[in-house]
Computed example of a mutant assay.
Amino acid sequence: MTNSGLETLVAPGAQPDRAGADVFAPVLPVDLRVTGLTKSFSGTPIFKDVSFGLSRGEAVAIVGANGTGKSTLLRCLMGLIPADAGVIDVLGTDVGSARSAQLRSMRAQMGLVSQKHNLVPRLSVLSNVVQGLLGQKPGPRHWSQSFAPAASRQAALDALEKVGLAHLAERRADRLSGGQSQRVAIARALVGKPKILIADEPTASLDPAAGEDVMDVFFDLARREGVTVIFISHNIDHALRYGDRVLGLANGGMPLDARADGLSAEKLRGLYD
């Protein structure tokens, strides 16, 4: 089921003008709204009554100890697993009641970057990025750059240019470093120009230097493209530096939903106690 109208939020930071009248930042669409979300596995509760919303262009970090349901929450948002209760609205789609075709259409507007790069090792870098268009353009023509339409190949090259790897377009994916592989995964996630980017611990498999490089590239591109970002991180510094807001899972719920600029590292460490 889709909504006929888009819910909107006023962007933060509105200031009165000199005459005293309120002057507001642009009204932003709400890309995602979660209300009363509950999930359990085999009778074991994971989280309950989780509610939050994300406006267009926000970057939101999800933090919490292992087992608090961070990845489970992301899978619920994408409609990969059903929730026990609650409502999830993503880009106007009611995830809980949507049919398969509606879910595919919703996911085609989302990009995913995970800690495992999930590249096809024997294919070229360019072919791996072209495959990022399969959600929008399913079929064998987007399995490999050799068969892809010229417009799709150019879109993939443009995405690689944005992450600084256009010169490696013909290299096999299994000949890349870890940091290069994750940059390719970012290009693959961005090639379809998604409205929402989801990143599940995108630097977990990288050394600290490569991780910092990947996060800088990822968020520089996300900001420039105006994409809404949801990312999981166990790195408290990353959560505070790259997130506009931080959502914290603990004790079977979401006790923290706050702007990052008002939080401290000590406050976030308390979620892991």
Rank of each mutant, 00 (worst) to 15 (best):
M215K: 07
L190Y: 09
I62M: 10
R33C: 15
L256I: 15
V50M: 12
L123P: 01
M215P: 09
A199N: 11
S114T: 15
D31I: 13
V246S: 07
V130I: 10
I230R: 03
E266H: 14
Q102L: 02
K39I: 06
D273T: 14
L103V: 10
A169Y: 03
E170D: 15
A189W: 09
A59T: 12
V125C: 03
A155N: 01
L80F: 05
E266R: 15
P45D: 03
E266N: 13
L126S: 04
N3D: 05
A185H: 07
A222Y: 00
F218W: 01
N3Y: 03
G211L: 07
A151L: 13
A148I: 05
T93W: 04
R104V: 07
A19H: 14
T228G: 10
Y272C: 02
V129W: 02
K162P: 00
V90M: 14
D213A: 14
V120R: 00
R56S: 13
A210I: 08
G211N: 08
K195V: 06
V229A: 11
P208K: 10
V246N: 05
A108K: 05
Q131Y: 10
I46G: 05
A151P: 01
M106S: 09
V63G: 06
L176D: 04
A150G: 04
A21Y: 13
T68E: 09
V113A: 09
Y272G: 02
A85Y: 06
K39H: 15
L271C: 06
D49K: 12
V63L: 10
V217A: 04
Q136T: 11
F52D: 04
